[in-house]
């Protein structure tokens, strides 16, 4: 009798230990996932591997474009998408203001998303970042003028070098001014 009672207690303890162990492991996994997700919102730590599956020859593949831009740093901002196949333009309509994002972050993320978009979608010619107060248009030829052959960037070392350059605020501001066409909206300031 006592032996069976001991087995019951031992199994109960093992079970409770397993439950706590799995909760701990799950929490650790959650922390890692959270840290990774946070890193994906930062241009200097964004993972190239997470966007490579969306490499495509044609910008006409709307789901692929949406998936690509949903895996880029600006993805934590509520938005919707549209595209114009006649001008090979993909448009992202944000629900918030550009001024609310902070100048430095906005510039870095627009530059990074544009490099990623043009490097991965072969016939994409223009990207439009449409905020409620301002609109920024970036063209492929301007980005290529700054970064050279974009396809050559699609390896870890080149990509990382490009990300490192985005840490320099002065450079970012200069390149951003050169490559973006900024348009203020009526009744808005910033």
């Amino acid at each position: 009798m006592k032996t069976r009672d001991r087995i019951i207690i031992a199994l109960g303890i093992i079970g409770i230990f397993f439950v706590f162990a799995t909760i701990q492991i799950r929490n650790k996994q959650y922390q890692v996932e959270k840290a990774y997700a946070q890193a994906q919102q930062e241009v200097t730590s964004h993972d190239l591997q997470s966007i490579l599956p969306y490499k495509n020859k044609y910008m006409g593949n709307a789901p692929n474009n949406i998936n690509l831009f949903s895996h880029l740093p600006l993805s934590d901002y509520p938005r919707n998408y549209s595209q114009n196949p006649d001008t090979f333009t993909f448009e992202i309509h944000f629900e918030g203001t550009a001024s609310g994002m902070g100048k430095n972050r906005l510039q870095k993320e627009i530059l990074y998303s544009s490099v990623a978009g043009f490097a991965l979608i072969d016939n994409l010619q223009s990207l439009k970042y449409d905020f409620t107060d301002q609109c920024f248009t970036v063209r492929r030829k301007d980005i290529e003028k700054q970064y050279g052959d974009l396809k050559a960037l699609l390896n870890e070392s080149s990509w990382h070098a490009m990300q490192e350059k985005l840490k320099k605020t002065g450079d970012v501001e200069r390149i951003f001014t050169e490559v973006t066409l900024r348009q203020k909206k009526e009744g808005m300031s910033g």
């Binding site: 069976r4 087995i7 199994l11």
Partner: peptide, 12 residues
């Protein structure tokens, strides 16, 4: 006792 041992084993 055997019922508890069986259920606990399956649970673990």
């Amino acid at each position: 006792q055997w019922m508890l041992i069986s259920l606990l084993s399956v649970w673990v």
